[in-house]
Write a protein that binds this DNA or RNA. Structure first.
Length: 452
RNA sequence: GUGGAUGUAGCUCAGCUGGUUAGAGCACUGGAUUGUGGAUCCAGGUGUCGGGGGUUCGAAUCCCCUCAUCCACCCCA
């Protein structure tokens, strides 16, 4: 009989415990930060009617859509982001949700594009959005959530780049380039990557702009100085454009709001060259880059869209939100050595080598779990050295050793696997002294207990 | 989707323009050590040389196809 080769599809991956545990921890961190701002969880189906998904982004996103005909003859597709399903969701449930509506959504999305480092065909996004308000407070909070999120994950060097589509659109209107806005912005977005000269070329070729027009667009992106200085220069450049002025004013409020909340200027920066590819953004836009690893791309991006659900409902639903690229972020953390190699969620291994006392082992493990500890009982009475080696390699923090002698004395050895030190502790009453000794070891290497 | 590179042990990698019976360092298993891990020593699995087909007396090596990974374009998280 011939065996089937075990394999996974291109861009799709398995997650072994040592990669799944940091992944789950990251998800928990993101959810905790979202909840701290009052965002509530939702979920939607992976599969949607094709008409719900199609034609919402660019032609490119349509090409990347996984689509097929289901058993009932329906044209369906796998969601390629969480924003389009949100639009459908909000349009369908607006009356029972109430506005403004703040939700987070952590789920898998699929894109049939070519793979690269940090780019997969199946990956997870952690979105949060505020729907139903045009207040700049929502824009400010979006930036603050991204900021808190990056800090909570463990980064201290990162940059949240902020821009506003109205500023760009305002300039393009003044230059008579409004019709070619998409092509112009797409070229501008590549500034950091391909340089000014190439961007000028592309704007002329792809967007039929004159060289003078293209240079004026680039001039905007080249403004230097503090945010305040740049905004001041913007006012003169955009003079006469209502859209441009509104965009500049919004940027001013976002930046000062973020500063008022205590975020240092080094972390939130005005960057007039970021444009975002997705067409539905209409106001503030965000991109987040890691200081030590900018080449992996933006790990958290988003922006304001003033008519999210226009294709699904006549109700006007503005919104703003952002998406954390969980898998891209994990790829970066892996590369930066920020992922701890631990293969067990438990911290205590109860070694086992006196089978006559099995009931006592089981009772001790149960008592410790009741005290809130994660305890694994080794299933075989193998040599103690081997069990300790297992504990060491899996990343256990504490090993418990009890054999005939200890059971007779009603004690148990509590071994700190990091220092190698062992202490003999009384089992009675209810294994409480043992639990306390373990807690003491565990708390010794937690600098700040996390709040839940 | 287009173009380029790569694929040898669990991992990181040698292997000359076809030629005896395939390698190194860590990781893995057992023993020296029937109750105290990371070390040392010995013994050893370390292998469809990505997969399939072709050329050849003979293919890890050459050719074709295929799959996967990485890079660039495109796009984006």
């Amino acid at each position: 009989m011939s065996l089937i080769t075990p394999r996974t599809l291109k861009g799709f991956r398995d997650y072994v415990p040592s990669s799944m545990m940091p992944r789950e921890r990251l998800i928990e961190t993101a959810k905790r930060v979202y909840r701290s701002y009052g965002f509530s969880p939702i979920d939607t189906p992976a599969l949607e009617y094709l008409e719900v998904l199609q034609g919402k982004g660019s032609d490119e996103t349509d090409r990347q859509l996984y689509q097929f005909v289901d058993h009932g003859g329906r044209a369906v597709g796998l969601r390629f982001d969480l924003t389009v399903p949100l639009a459908r969701f909000v349009a369908q449930h607006a009356s029972e949700l109430g506005m403004p509506f703040k939700r987070y959504h952590v789920a898998t999305v699929w894109r049939g594009e070519n793979t690269q480092r940090g780019r997969y065909r199946e990956f997870m996004q952690c979105d949060f959005d505020t729907i139903g308000t045009q207040s700049v407070v929502a824009d400010i909070e979006t930036a603050l959530v991204i900021h808190d999120l990056m800090l909570a994950i463990g980064f201290d060097q990162f940059t949240i780049c902020v821009n506003n589509r109205l500023v760009l659109n305002g300039l393009l209107e003044k230059l008579g380039l409004a019709a070619q806005a998409t092509a112009i912005l797409r070229a501008l977005d590549k500034l950091a990557k391909i340089g000014a000269e190439n961007v000028l070329e592309e704007m002329q070729q792809q967007a039929q702009a004159t060289r003078a027009q293209a240079q004026q667009v680039l001039q905007l992106a080249a403004l230097r100085g503090t945010a305040d200085e740049v905004l001041q220069q913007l006012d003169t450049i955009l003079a006469g454009s209502a859209n441009g002025a509104a965009g500049a004013e919004s940027l001013r409020q976002v930046l000062s709001g973020v500063r008022a909340a205590g975020v240092p200027d080094t972390r939130v920066k005005l960057d007039l060259s970021i444009a975002r590819g997705l067409d539905y953004y209409t106001g503030t836009i965000f991109e987040t880059y890691l200081g030590p690893l900018p080449t992996i791309g933006s790990v958290c991006s988003g922006g304001r869209y003033d008519n999210l659900a226009g294709l699904f409902t006549k109700q006007h639903l503005p919104g703003i939100g952002a998406s954390l690229g969980l898998d891209r972020l994990l790829a970066a953390m892996e590369e930066l050595g920020m992922v701890e190699k631990v293969a067990t969620p438990a911290s205590v291994l109860l070694t086992y080598f006196a089978p006559d006392h099995l009931p006592a082992y089981l009772q001790l493990a149960a008592q410790l779990r009741a005290a809130g500890l994660r305890v694994e009982l080794y299933p075989e009475a193998k040599r103690l050295g081997q069990q300790l080696k297992y504990a060491d390699q899996r990343g256990f923090r504490v090993a418990l050793v009890a054999g005939d002698d200890e059971w007779a004395r009603r004690t148990c050895q509590v071994k700190d696997l990091r220092t190698g030190e062992s202490q003999e502790v009384n089992l009675d009453p209810d294994a409480e002294p043992v639990a306390q000794a373990i807690h003491a070891i565990l708390s010794s290497d937690l600098p700040a207990p996390e709040e839940h």
